[in-house]
């Protein structure tokens, strides 16, 4: 394959990873109406879980991935119960600052436990140095997960409940939907997707550090915002856009060190033109 196609495939795969993370942000925003700033750090915890089970305990890869997904899911549910549920119904600013605190807490705890030195985690030695295969696997799994998620939300009972809660929480509650349970399920799905994203991230860059989650987290959040936060197709489109921009900027020598600036500048421009993102709904505020 020519360089161009390798690059394009890599961009799509990166976009797929961002989209997986962005789905967690956008679902939580759509249903719980809060910005889960700690979502990026769940990726980091997933990667560290893989580090502990694979590199330290020497378990088989598939078991490591399953454990990482289960651990992140439980962590997401736990965070929601301990930190966000007490604040339900209070101001968005308070919830956002709590989420920042949770993110800070997770990073500090991992720092305390594993020190700040980066560690190598090579989950698939055979895929090392084979970007095309890595990209194809990433893209395939990410697409399959997204299709499954869309089917889940559109055709299951709990999916219907999720849509109802995101439409109008009060009315959903009156119709007998257990809003707390629905929000818990949302966090669980978002966190498990983050764990999958962590595995793909390790395939791309096999290093874990305690701050590894914050940058992908912020970029994926930007992707969710570009696509229109609360919209699932929007998160996918935003993720792909983000992956394309990043790969494009990284491949041009002069632009390389400005990649992040370009990404954020595009985010700001899109927000200024369409404050609710590409596919977001505009909502009028009432007193």
């Amino acid at each position: 394959m020519s360089d161009f196609w390798t690059l394009a495939l890599g961009a799509l795969a990166l976009g797929g990873v961002y989209a997986l993370i962005a789905l967690g942000y956008t679902m939580v925003y759509g249903i719980a109406k809060m910005l889960n700033f700690a979502h990026g750090d769940i990726i980091m915890v997933g990667a560290y879980s893989a580090f502990v089970t694979f590199m330290l305990a020497g378990m088989p890869v598939w078991l490591c991935i399953v454990i990482a997904i289960i651990f992140c899911t439980l962590l997401g549910i736990g965070i929601e119960k301990a930190a966000y549920r007490p604040l339900r119904g209070s101001s968005p600013l308070a919830i956002l600052i709590t989420a920042i605190g949770v993110s800070y807490l997770m990073e500090s705890i991992v720092y305390l436990a594993f020190s700040s030195a980066p560690k190598n985690v090579v989950l698939f030695p055979s895929l090392q140095g084979n970007p095309t295969a890595t990209a194809l696997i990433t893209l395939g799994v990410a697409t399959a997960l997204m299709v499954a998620l869309v089917l889940f939300i559109n055709y299951t009972k709990i999916g219907k409940a999720m849509r109802a809660v995101s439409e109008d929480r009060g009315a959903a509650q009156l119709m007998g939907i257990n809003v707390n349970f629905v929000i818990m399920v949302t966090f669980a799905i978002g966190s498990s997707l983050a764990a999958v994203a962590a595995v793909f991230w390790l395939m791309k860059t096999p290093l874990v550090t305690y701050t590894m989650g914050s940058l992908p987290g912020i970029k994926a959040f930007s992707a969710a915002v570009i696509g229109g936060i609360g919209s699932i197709p929007g998160a996918m489109i935003g993720g792909i856009i983000m992956g394309l921009i990043e790969t494009f900027c990284d491949s041009i020598p002069g632009l390389q060190s400005y990649t992040m600036a370009v990404e954020f500048a595009i985010l700001v421009i899109i927000l200024l033109i369409r404050p609710s993102g590409l596919l977001g709904k505009t909502k009028r505020e009432k007193v």
Partner: peptide
Amino acid sequence: ALKNVIYAMVLI
């Protein structure tokens, strides 16, 4: 990092 853990807990 212990300091940061404490700050984060206090913040939350």
